[in-house]
Amino acid sequence: MSQRRQLPMPRPRELLTNSSHFFAFGFGSGFAPKAPGTVGTLVAIPVYWLIADWSLPLYALWLVVTFALGVYWCERSSKALGLHDHPGIVWDEMVGYWLTMLLAPPGWQWMLAGFVLFRLFDIAKPWPVSLADRKIHGGLGIMIDDILAAVYAWLAMQLLAYFFVG
């Protein structure tokens, strides 16, 4: 039996009756048997597609609200499961992707580039992402390392856009 199968998981019914699990597990994408963080990031793409044309203030508000709610939902879900930063908790990846895409040029190529860059930095965890991952706990700890990884990915996206678009 794999280690993933031994982890405490919310029952599928709980996903529909517990809003913290529903959102923390990325609308169910965190149940993916392999690479749930990658699957959660993929689920963030259609949401991004829906909000990509929002004004900068509205998009920034979206990021602040989804981050704050993520701290709350991820904290509650991880406490209910008795495991800090459960691999199935993927809301942090979703918000990280949306941050990566802030001010990105339009087009599927840029959505793909944002996906690749965010996953790269989220998996590699360069300093201070790795430090935050180890030292900050609770819902804030679950969210902040992905936000820091997204800052790296956002900077890379902006550099790419500068050289290839502008």
Score class of each variant (00 low, 15 high):
P106L: 09
S77H: 09
W91M: 10
A80P: 05
L61K: 05
L102D: 02
E75I: 11
M94P: 00
K79N: 15
D85K: 08
W98V: 02
G114D: 07
L61F: 12
W127P: 04
L81S: 12
L112T: 09
L117S: 04
V95S: 00
A80E: 14
H86Y: 09
L99F: 10
P87N: 09
Y97L: 13
W73K: 10
V90N: 02
G107Y: 09
W91D: 02
H86N: 12
A124L: 14
E75N: 15
M111K: 05
L56C: 03
P105Y: 07
R76N: 15
P106F: 10
M94D: 00
Y97S: 01
L83H: 02
L63E: 10
E75A: 15
G96P: 03
E75F: 13
A68S: 15
F67H: 12
H84W: 06
F67L: 11
L63G: 11
I89C: 01
L103H: 15
A104L: 03
K125E: 07
F115C: 01
W98H: 06
W108E: 02
R119D: 07
C74S: 14
V65H: 10
K79Q: 15
F115G: 01
W110I: 03
G96K: 00
H84N: 11
M101R: 03
L102Y: 08
V95W: 00
L117Y: 05
S77K: 11
I89R: 03
G70A: 13
D85E: 13
W73A: 07
W73Q: 14
